[in-house]
C-alpha cells in the first residue's frame, strides 16, 4: 500500500475514513515517506486527528513528515488559470468567484476536475521528485460522491470536445489508472448500511472507473468475547440460580453486568452477519481494525489505529 503515490480513502459518512487516512499517513511516515494529506470535504477533521488545528489550501506541516491541505476548488481554479492559461486573476476574484460558482453548478464535473486535478498535480510532482512529499493521501468524498469525483477526468473527456481541460484529462486518467501509482481504499464498519454501500461502490468503481482498488478496511470491529463452550458457561451464569448466587457475592448490579456482556455478544453477532455478507460479495483484501474503547478521536486514537493497520498489512 505504502509504495503507491496516491492513496484515496472513501466510505459512508461516519465510518472513520478520515481516521484511516490520518492513520495511513502516520504509518507511511514510520516507513520513511514524506506525506501530503488532502482533505476534500473541508471539515477540518483530519488535521485534528493528527493533533493539529485546521489548515487551509496551502499545505502546512501538521505532524513530523506530514503536511496537510484542505481542498478549495476556487483556489484550485485560480492556480490552474495562473499556471496554464496565464490568465491574470488577481484583482478579479469577486466576479470570478461568482462566475465560477455558476459554471461549476451548471457544468457537471468542473468542481470535481478541479479537485482531482490539483491532487494529481501533486502526485505528478511526487513522481518527478519536485515535491516535498513522496506520497499523497486523500480523505476523499463519501461513497455517494466519490465515483463522480474520481471519474471527473473521464466525464470531462466525454463532454468537452476541445479546450485545455480535455487535453489535461489524458495524463490524469493515466495516473489514476496505474496500479503502481494509485489505490482506492474503502473504509466501512460491520453494519448494514456501510456494508451495503461498500458492496455497491466496489461494483460501481469496477464498471465505471479504471481506478485500482486496494483494500476494504473494516473499522470498529468488536472483540469476540467467548468460545462456544465459554458462551455456554456464560449463559448458565445468566440463569436465575447461578446469577443469584453470583449476586450474593458480587453485589446488586450483577444482573446488569451480565446483561452488558450479553449486549456485547449480540452486537458482535449482528455485525458478524454483515461481515459475512461483505466477504461473500467483495473479493478485495479485508483489513480489520478493532473498536477503540479507550481512546477518543485525536492523535492518540490515530496512533493506535495506525498500529493496528500496520499489523493487518504485515508491516
Amino acid at each position: 500500500m505504502l509504495d503507491r503515490r496516491l492513496l484515496c480513502f472513501t466510505g459512508k459518512g461516519g465510518v472513520g475514513k478520515s481516521t484511516m487516512a490520518a492513520a495511513a499517513a502516520l504509518l507511511a511516515v514510520q516507513h520513511g515517506k514524506r506525506v501530503l494529506v488532502v482533505e476534500v470535504d473541508a471539515k477540518g477533521a483530519l488535521p485534528a486527528l493528527l493533533g493539529h488545528a485546521p489548515v487551509g489550501y496551502r499545505p502546512e506541516t501538521v505532524a513530523p513528515g506530514v503536511r496537510a491541505m484542505a481542498m478549495d476548488t476556487e483556489q484550485s481554479l485560480r492556480e490552474y488559470l495562473r499556471l496554464n492559461l496565464r490568465v491574470p486573476v488577481v484583482g478579479r476574484i469577486g466576479p470570478l468567484a461568482r462566475a465560477f460558482d455558476f459554471v461549476a453548478t451548471a457544468a457537471p464535473g468542473v468542481k470535481e476536475i478541479l479537485t482531482i486535478g490539483k491532487i494529481l498535480w501533486e502526485v505528478r510532482a511526487a513522481i518527478d521528485g519536485t515535491a516535498d512529499h513522496d506520497l499523497v493521501i486523500v480523505d476523499a468524498a463519501a461513497t455517494g460522491h466519490v465515483v463522480s469525483q474520481l471519474g471527473a477526468p473521464q466525464s470531462i473527456r466525454e463532454l468537452a470536445d476541445v479546450g485545455p481541460l480535455r487535453s489535461q484529462t489524458e495524463w490524469m486518467i493515466e495516473l489514476l489508472s496505474d496500479p503502481a501509482i494509485t489505490e482506492l481504499n474503502v473504509v466501512t464498519t460491520p453494519e448494514e448500511m456501510p456494508v451495503a454501500e461498500t458492496i455497491e461502490l466496489v461494483a460501481r468503481v469496477r464498471s465505471e472507473l479504471s481506478v485500482p482498488l486496494g483494500s476494504v478496511i473494516v473499522n470498529r470491529v468488536l472483540p469476540e468475547l467467548f468460545t462456544r463452550a465459554d458462551e455456554a458457561a456464560f449463559e448458565a451464569m445468566r440463569a436465575p440460580a447461578a446469577s443469584e448466587w453470583i449476586a450474593a457475592r458480587a453485589g446488586a448490579g450483577t444482573a446488569e453486568v451480565l446483561d452488558g456482556a450479553r449486549l456485547a455478544v449480540e452486537l458482535r453477532r449482528a455485525r458478524a452477519e454483515h461481515l459475512d455478507a461483505l466477504r461473500a460479495a467483495v473479493d478485495l483484501p479485508l483489513l480489520y481494525v478493532p473498536y477503540q474503547f479507550t481512546a477518543t478521536p485525536g492523535l492518540r486514537m490515530t496512533t493506535v489505529i495506525a498500529e493496528a493497520l500496520g499489523e493487518e498489512l504485515g508491516l
Binding site: 488559470l81 492559461l85 490568465v87 470570478l96 462566475a99 459554471v103 457544468a107 468542473v110 463532454l159 468537452a160 470536445d161 476541445v162 479546450g163 485545455p164 481541460l165 480535455r166
Partner: peptide, 10 residues
Amino acid sequence: IADRLLGSRL
C-alpha cells in the same frame, strides 16, 4: 476564461 477552459461547444 470560460471559453478557453471549457471549449465553445460545451
